[in-house]
Write a protein that binds this DNA or RNA. Structure first.
Lengths: 241, 241
DNA sequence: CCAAAAGTGTTCTCGGTACACCCATGT
DNA sequence: ACATGGGTGTACCGAGAACACTTTTGG
């Protein structure tokens, strides 16, 4: 039996013993590149995609589980990760998708399996430096890749809705806490870069002067040396304190 | 067997079949009276109190369950109720409290029961007109009553923490959405009443003039006739649109 | 008529807005 | 030198803060 089939079989047979029942986690992982906000998605079939998610070990906290699931997909630790909403409608069951996926891959299933039950899912959103993240698919999916948040493929279940809520929450947090936007950028960044990030997320142009003044007055960034070897006047580099 | 013992026995034996596993709901029910923010608490033993909470039926949405649990305790429907956080630490199990409570009441239990497992709890907060609410204890508790949020008795588990987070979230929402404070007042209320409510929640004095102007400019309240038969200049009554 | 509460107005300050101007660098 | 992007300054406006003043009621 191929390795991925073994892993899938193990999930079906061992999962009930290992994980909390009826609860799952969905991670909306945001990245930022070329003036566009991206979301990390997993490809289940030719046409269907889903959010990276998973289950909670019986002796694992929610936050720890969300971090583990995040690390499994992008190989990074200590990432900005925040719980934002719980999705608890009654129709939240993967039953159909799981059955067809597992059948397609030659792994026997049946409707009574724990994994076909209704799941309440806790949504977390993460902010990562897209250059450091290394997207890794798992045994159950074909691909793991970044997608512009404005042009998403068809997603399973209510995952389109989950991303929408995550983005709304991220926008609010970006307004409320000055430093969190920088989690989407490299350690060192320039004000114009941060400025473009904000303009992208809020989808509107913002005054350069005021933006710079507000960010510097907030006191959460420290100015480093000037960036060198760049066209035009060289900007300062900053780092979150 | 007395009725409350029957109900408790039924919960233990039937609960696993009826409810989602490992998930519960805790409701922080806020009321407001005599210049003080109150929380509804249930008394489990002579010295221990807890938040009203409960479990989710297998074919019931989270929001529906939270509303049902709320209605069971205060006999009111269509109440402002908002999910605010999920509490998912690994030590969240009522095991000890449940065992001693049930033993005390002469209902046999054992540690393997579903109810002794670890529970992830979704926190909701509610805003109610304290004059309309009729606190009703259930079969499992001695009392159900309002407590000033600043002087809480010892609570089970992390319920003190849950109330703290609920209050923080309520404060944020009160700042962000103009009308929600009025859910704590009767249908018709005066601006000075609303003003005192805000001063209580934020625990600081706020300028009368500016408060009134801001509230009226927000356009979410409609002015009714003047209140009569009251000492001093009679204030206008308002209603949320 | 007076005390107290309710309603409204005045002034000042501060932060947001729009825009202009200067600086630095690679072509 | 100049086009381009980066950094900072100025004048204006509106909302928030502190406080004053007027209005209404019961005693």
């Amino acid at each position: 039996m191929p390795q991925h089939q073994q892993a899938m079989h193990a999930l079906l047979t061992e999962g009930e013993r290992l994980f909390l029942s009826n609860i799952s986690i969905d991670n909306v992982i945001f990245g930022y590149a070329s003036n566009s906000l991206k979301v990390l998605l997993l490809q289940v079939t030719d046409t269907q995609w889903m959010l990276p998610g998973g289950y909670i070990f019986k002796n694992e906290s929610l936050d720890a589980a969300a971090n583990r699931i995040l690390e499994e997909r992008i190989a990074l630790r200590d990432i900005f990760l925040r719980q934002f909403h719980v999705f608890g409608e009654t129709d939240r069951s993967f039953s159909n998708e799981i059955t067809s996926l597992f059948n397609e891959l030659g792994v026997p299933t049946n409707p009574d399996l724990w994994i076909n039950q209704r799941f309440v899912s806790v949504g977390y959103y993460a902010l990562v430096d897209i250059n450091k993240a290394q997207p890794r698919p798992n045994q159950f999916v074909k691909a793991c890749s970044w997608h512009p948040v404005e042009e998403l493929p068809p997603l399973l279940l209510d995952h389109n809705e989950i991303i929408k809520v995550a983005k709304e929450r991220f926008r609010k947090d970006l307004n409320a806490y000055d430093a969190i936007g920088s989690h989407l950028l490299p350690d060192k960044f320039t004000m114009p870069e941060l400025h473009r990030l904000y303009e992208t997320v809020f989808d509107k142009s913002m005054d350069r002067s005021r933006f710079q003044k507000k960010m510097l007055d907030s006191g959460v960034f420290e100015r480093l040396h000037k960036k060198k070897g760049v066209a035009h006047r060289s900007p300062y580099l900053y780092r979150a304190k």
